[in-house]
Nucleic acid binder design. Sequence first.
DNA 1: CCTCCACTGGAAGATCGGGAAG
DNA 2: CTTCCCGATCTTCCAGTGGAGG
Length: 334
Amino acid sequence: MIRDARVFQTDFVPNDVVHRDTEINHLSSVLQPIADGDPGTPAFLHGPSGTGKTCIAQYTVEKLREQVISLNTQYVNCWENHSRFKVLYRILEGLDNTFDIHRQSTPTDVLIDRLHEYDGPRYVIILDEADQLTDKELLYELLRTQNLELIFIANEEIKFFAELNDRLASRMQTCARIKFDSYSDEKLIAILRDRIDWGLEPGVISEEQLNEIADQAAGDARVAIGTLRVAARIADGSGASEIKPEHIQSAVSEAKTEIQQKTVEKLTDDQRVLYEIITEHNAICPGDLYEAYTDRVEDARTKRMVRNYLQKMEHYNLIKSRGENRGREYIAVP
DNA sequence: CCTCCACTGGAAGATCGGGAAG
DNA sequence: CTTCCCGATCTTCCAGTGGAGG
């Protein structure tokens, strides 16, 4: 049933993206000066998850590479590299300039200096999940570095700007802002159909089932593609010759828990204990939570550290917090 | 109204872990 | 081997917030 599993990977960038023309054109025009050897304008892409921001950024930069002979590019995910050091490291990595940099012995200042010294070809950097950066000042440093072309990606525009100080916010105002809206069902279906043409045997999924997937995904292409992939796998595993409604039903929930499971695996032991306690309760107040945690764990961290863990887990969308101060409760995300 | 106190999150400093230098 | 140094992690301290209960 599955011909090519690659097209269902979350980081797959299609050769031809056909459902985001406006956004692609906008971004291309922002980057166009680079093709003429001039500095471009930084870009800021924002919109809900699964709306193609990352995909379009990578696709457009790839097209630019075809036009410009000497061009360096790098993709940095700030979720995975949220510290100042890691982001700078990844950026220098894109220039093959890290052979003598080691976390332990190289101060971050040296990384900044080295980046400032860079005078090679123009360097396009995609900073994905830029709102996850702990040290936003780094954005300022990057913006004033010669030869860098920056593409920032974040989910919520307003929230992102609210977290910046005035100086940085006004500097960021100069970015070309490109908004990504949720996909309509028709567009989601068109996207799915592209992937199906490449990835699945012909005729294994009906129009009706496609509609169902698009409906469940609620505008999120990542969820739609994930659901399709899991549904195909389930159908294949059960020996069916085509994807049936029941395959989709189990795929929807499995696709969601699959993502969650991956995140839980990334937690430390202490964090996982906290997560388990929260999932065992409908809602739990901080005091009880900390007590339960100290009971289960040998050598417990302090309350302050636990608050950091909880914040992190909320960021990962594993738990939610409700209420403030005294009324605070923690709830597991279903 | 006021006081108490559980809770939050910022700031500053201590500690950990591990590569480099001696 | 030891010593030095760094970022990351963790603790300590604390000001601020707002609900509970006189």
